[in-house]
Design a protein around this nucleic acid. Structure first.
Lengths: 316, 316
DNA sequence: TAATTTTACATAAGTACTTATATAAATATT
DNA sequence: AATATTTATATAAGTACTTATGTAAAATTA
């Protein structure tokens, strides 16, 4: 079936290429999953730039042993993506000093947990005794065939993230995050209505003092997501609302963790049900709501928000 | 220095690619050295076609797990090089049956000793115990850095060829090869003068019966090269001439082996010296003559051949 | 000090793949 | 039998490198 494997040592070159291309393609899928605008082919150059701040084209070339045009082209791509800044050297006017941009540093932070997982997974796959290189490749390809590399990495990253994730209740110091996280996604998908700005700027007044609850998801103590349970009227009806996750941390199922936390919390309060308003535009969100048991119900005419065209409820 | 190596398991993908590309590039050099119009990227597809005679595009695709357009494009290249023939299937008109052409089979014969060497060398490099894939790659790259892969293979092939090469004296059954081998190179570099045709067609009359000697280099009993020692006048002067090696077997230093054999033979006969006529056009040949001790001397006006513009002699 | 060589980087074109798409023939479904 | 789907192959365009080549600045040599 697999002719290349049958060629043994003779086909080593083609074989190595195949494994390499598979790993590259799968790593691209991982970056895509976590919404990181990055590319596995950029990795070697990007990593060098992130290691020693301020390197030149030729220094990178010497470290990597690629050709010089390859480095130039990669630097162009990194520049196009806004990940690096290039300054002219004042002493030697031929040289150009490359370093990470602000966006580059932010991307690096996003990449690090993925790189850590890749390193770990490859190690568990390849740190084993074997009596030939081909035997090692066979073993590696067998493992990669069993379960796709991208899925393995994605799960591994999420697991690690979960271990470092906690969900905490509202405190004054988090008010800023509550506003920023919500405004960010409103700006992306709709626009900030006056009522939004009023509520988001005064969570204490509009939510907490009325008996509502706000939760924050923290990754390594850093706030990355939020959600609120807001009382509607005085008959114990609560709305699940103001859910937002920072763009850099989407793909880690942090939203789902917040959702589960709200449901558990509502149950512990003895609430009979939860309702929420959303927009059909947000297909992924609706999918998650259904997954957690929310069922579509008719939406009232006099809704707070123009963007809402769907109402759902979860009855306990 | 080598950043990629420093990245360990994380950089495995880029690492595999680098090793693969090095092996491919070096293998191309080997094919070039032996004047074989072939390409390492064609190898997987070409090998499948040579294994089972009559395959289709999609059969190759299934065996190799490349994409279908990759196979189509490779088949086009193989067709352009004249290495394969493509017939339409009579039963299923969508299918095209691919098999080796006459030239493809000839090329396969040339490729086989090289493939054998590649397999052997890679085996000696990689059949060793190690506790991780990266460790194996390090070990392989160390060996490849010490001595270029292409040179290792070229030497290995030549060594193997030498073991299967013998040099024999003229027999009637070889007369045809004497003519064919010489005419082939004459046609390539010059043209066949009437005197050439006369001598080459009658080696018995013009060389053997006059006390001359003709040698044949045989690879696995198959004639691949020839050379003659032809007496000039009656004072024991001999001319080294009619040297030719088949185009498929150039690059194996068969010419040099014939040369050494002639010199040894001349010495054993107690000859005082050897002379030869050549053309400055044949730079590689002149280089070899000098390497074996021949020194340039003035060329006479009344030479047998128009193409000769240099005379050399080796005094024992 | 002037001329030459080397160094640092950029750009153009080629290659061996990829993905996306098209077309014709065979097969399956209705 | 007509229609839809699948299969076999081809073609076009994109990508991540390569080799070949160009240009300006620095370093070396005359």
């Amino acid at each position: 079936m697999d002719a290349l494997r049958g060629y043994g040592e003779l086909g080593l070159g083609s074989r190595l290429k195949r494994v390499s291309e598979y790993l590259m393609k799968e790593t691209q899928l991982v970056y895509n999953h976590f919404n990181i605008d990055f590319d596995p082919y950029l990795f070697p150059v990007f990593k060098i730039i992130s290691n020693k701040n301020g390197v030149t084209n030729s220094e990178i070339q010497n470290s990597l042993k690629y050709t010089q045009p390859a480095i130039s082209q990669t630097l162009n791509k990194l520049k196009d993506k806004g990940l690096i800044v290039i300054k002219n050297d004042t002493l030697d006017k031929r040289k150009k000093i490359v370093s990470l941009s602000y966006k580059g540093n932010k991307t690096l932070i996003q990449l690090k947990p993925i790189w850590k997982s890749i390193d770990e997974v490859i190690k568990t796959y390849t740190l084993e005794k074997s009596s030939s290189l081909i035997e090692h490749l066979n073993s590696l390809e067998n493992k990669l065939n069993k379960k796709s590399f991208s899925n393995t990495i994605i799960e591994n990253v999420k697991m690690e993230v979960n271990q470092e994730l906690d969900i905490v209740l509202y405190e004054d110091k988090y008010a800023k995050y509550f506003y920023d996280l919500n405004v960010e996604w409103l700006k992306t998908y709709f626009y900030v209505e006056p009522y939004d700005d009023e509520v988001l700027s005064n969570p204490e007044k509009y939510i907490i003092s009325k008996g509502g609850h706000i939760f924050f998801a923290r990754l390594n103590k850093q706030v990355v997501g939020t959600v609120a349970l807001m009382p509607i009227g005085n008959d114990g009806l609560f709305e699940l609302t103001k859910m937002a996750v920072s763009p850099e941390h989407r793909g880690y199922k942090i939203g789902q963790q917040l959702m589960q936390h709200c449901i558990d919390y509502a149950k512990s309060l003895g609430l009979p049900k939860l309702i929420l308003y959303s927009s059909r535009k947000l297909e992924n969100a609706i999918y998650i709501y259904r997954k957690y048991g929310f069922i579509e119900v008719p939406v009232e005419a006099n809704c707070h928000y123009k963007r809402c065209d769907i109402k759902m409820e979860l009855v306990f």
